[in-house]
Design a protein around this nucleic acid. Structure first.
Length: 473
DNA sequence: ATGTTC
C-alpha cells in the first residue's frame, strides 16, 4: 500500500488501477499503525473507483472496516455520478443528540444516577428487536414522521416547538417518499419508533469536565461541572431494512447500467436513475425517522428526570444543544459545486459563518458531537475554515480496534469492569456488553487530536460519563 | 448497525 505523506497527519493513496481519484487518510503516528489491520484502506480505494466520485475520497482517523465504504469514510459525488446505499451504511442517520441542563453534576451520587437510569429504562425500550411504548401514537404518525421529520413528533407532543432549530437539516431531509420504502421496512419502522436499539447505541448522563473555548461553550449553553445527556441511536430496523433492500436493487441496477462494482457493498446506481432516486427517497425517510426517534427518546428521558428529581424539564433547564447525523448522504455545495456527500461514520462540521449552518449557530458554526466509546469521554467540536479540505467533516467517534467477534473472544468481564471505572451502567448480561468495552476501541483523545493538530476542528468541551444506559436484553 | 446465520 503506497501511503504518501501529505502534510501534518495526512496521507495520500495516489490514484492507480481503476481508481478515478486519490484517497486521503487523516492519522497521527499513533493511529497510523492500525491502518494495516483491516480492509478499510482497500475499501476506501474501491470507493475511489466509482463513477462521478470527486477528489479525494477521505478516511477519518477513526476509520475501520465496514460494509462497502469503511466506517469513517467520506465520498462526495458529482451530479452525474452514483449514489450508494453501502456508502451511507446499515444504520441510516445513526447519530448523536446532546442535551444541556442547568443541573450541577456534583449533586448526583451513584445511587441517584442509578435511579435515573432505571427510570430512563422504564420509559425507553432498549436492545435489539424491542418495540416502542408509544405505538398508539407512532403508528398513526409514522407516514408524517418519515416525510416531515421531527416537526411531526413535536406536534404529537414529544419535546417543544422550536427544538427542530437545534437539529441538522432542521430535523427533516427534503425529498423523502414513503412509496420508495418496502412494506417490510415500514412494518419494522412503525413498531420500533422511540426505541434505543443495541450495539454502540446509548443514553448517557455526563459531566462537563473541560471547557476548551469559553466563548463557544457559552454560545452552546455549556459550562464546567454541568450535567449533560447524550443520546446515540439511529433508524433501527427501518434503516437497516432499507439498506438491505436497496443494496440488492442497486447491485442489479449497476449491472444494467454497466457499472463495474469493486465490491457488492458499494452497490450503486446513477443518482438520476429511477433506482438511484428511489434509494435517495427511502434514505431520506430513514433520516427523518432517526431524527424523530432521538426526539421521542429525549422527551422520555426528560420525563424520567422529572419523575426522579421532582422538577419540570423547564425547571431543570433541559434544552437540546444539537443533533447530528453520522451516516447520511446529502446534497451540499462545496467549492461552488453541488455534490452528493456520503458520510459514513463521519460528522458534518461547518465553520463559523458558513451559510449552511442552522440559523441559531450561523455565527459560531454548529456543534459537532463526537461520542466516546462506553466509559470514555465525548467531545463537542466545531469546524474551521480549513475543514473545507474534508468537505467540512470530522470523525464520528473513537473507532473500533477489535471487531465485535474478536472483542467478545478477547475481552474478559474483569477487563471490562476495570475499564468502566466508576461509571454506573445497566448490565444484566455481560455477553451483550463486552464487545462495547472501551478496550475494544481506539483512544478517542488521539483521534480528536489528529484533527485538531491538522487544524480542521477546534475543541469546545469534553464530557465524561457518569452513567450509561446501553441496549441490553 | 440488525426480529444478527435471506
Amino acid at each position: 500500500m503506497e501511503l504518501v505523506r501529505d502534510g501534518l497527519n495526512r496521507y495520500r493513496i495516489p490514484r492507480r488501477g481503476k481508481m478515478r481519484v486519490d484517497a486521503v487518510i487523516y492519522v497521527n503516528d499513533y493511529l497510523r499503525r492500525f491502518l494495516g489491520e483491516d480492509k478499510a484502506l482497500e475499501q476506501l480505494m474501491n470507493a475511489a473507483c466509482l463513477p462521478g466520485v470527486v477528489e479525494p475520497v477521505i478516511g477519518m482517523p477513526d476509520i475501520h472496516e465496514g460494509f462497502g465504504l469503511p466506517i469513517g469514510g467520506i465520498m462526495a459525488v458529482a451530479p452525474d455520478g452514483v449514489i450508494s446505499a453501502g456508502a451511507v451504511g446499515m444504520d441510516i442517520n445513526c447519530g448523536v443528540r446532546l442535551i444541556r441542563t442547568d443541573l450541577e453534576a456534583r449533586h448526583f451520587n451513584k445511587s441517584l444516577l442509578r435511579r435515573l437510569i432505571e427510570r430512563i429504562e422504564h420509559y425507553v425500550p432498549t436492545g435489539i428487536g424491542k418495540k416502542g411504548k408509544h405505538q398508539g401514537i407512532t403508528r398513526r404518525i409514522f407516514e408524517e414522521v418519515v416525510h416531515r421529520g421531527v416537526t411531526a413528533v413535536i406536534e404529537a407532543g414529544f419535546g417543544r416547538p422550536g427544538d427542530e432549530e437545534y437539529i441538522e437539516e432542521m430535523g427533516c431531509l427534503p425529498g423523502a417518499d414513503i412509496s420508495a420504502c418496502s412494506r417490510r421496512a415500514c412494518e419494522r419502522g412503525e413498531v420500533q419508533l422511540g426505541t434505543l436499539g443495541g450495539g454502540n447505541h446509548f443514553i448517557e448522563i455526563q459531566r462537563v469536565t473541560d471547557i476548551f473555548d469559553e466563548e463557544l461553550a457559552r454560545s452552546f449553553g455549556l459550562f464546567e461541572g454541568q450535567l449533560t445527556i447524550m443520546i446515540h441511536t439511529g433508524s433501527r430496523g427501518f434503516g437497516h431494512q432499507i439498506c438491505t433492500d436497496y443494496t440488492n436493487k442497486l447491485a442489479a441496477a449497476a449491472k444494467r447500467y454497466g457499472i463495474e462494482l469493486p465490491d457488492r457493498g458499494l452497490a450503486c446506481a446513477p443518482i438520476d436513475s429511477p433506482e438511484g432516486k428511489a434509494y435517495y427517497q427511502a434514505m431520506a425517510c430513514a433520516v427523518n425517522y432517526a431524527f424523530s426517534n432521538r426526539q421521542i427518546i429525549m422527551a422520555d428521558v426528560a420525563r424520567a428526570f422529572a419523575d426522579v428529581l421532582g422538577q419540570s424539564p423547564e425547571e431543570m433547564g433541559f434544552q437540546l444543544v444539537y443533533d447530528v447525523a453520522h451516516n447520511i448522504a446529502k446534497w451540499e455545495e462545496h467549492g461552488g459545486r453541488r455534490l452528493l456527500v456520503h458520510r459514513k461514520g463521519a460528522t458534518r462540521a461547518l465553520c463559523a459563518g458558513h451559510p449552511a449552518n442552522p440559523p441559531v449557530y450561523r455565527r459560531t458554526g454548529h456543534p459537532a458531537l463526537i461520542p466516546g466509546s462506553m466509559g470514555t469521554s465525548s467531545y463537542v467540536l466545531v469546524g474551521t475554515e480549513k475543514a473545507a479540505e474534508t468537505f467540512f467533516s470530522v470523525n464520528h467517534g473513537a473507532g473500533r480496534l477489535l471487531s465485535r467477534t474478536a472483542a467478545e473472544k478477547k475481552i474478559t468481564k474483569e477487563e471490562f469492569e476495570r475499564a468502566m471505572g466508576d461509571v454506573v451502567y445497566n448490565v444484566r448480561s455481560y455477553k451483550d456488553l463486552l464487545d462495547e468495552s472501551p478496550t475494544a476501541y481506539k483512544d478517542i483523545e488521539q483521534v480528536i487530536q489528529t484533527l485538531v493538530d491538522r487544524g480542521i476542528t477546534r475543541k469546545v468541551a469534553r464530557m465524561c460519563p457518569l452513567a450509561v444506559v446501553k441496549g441490553v436484553d
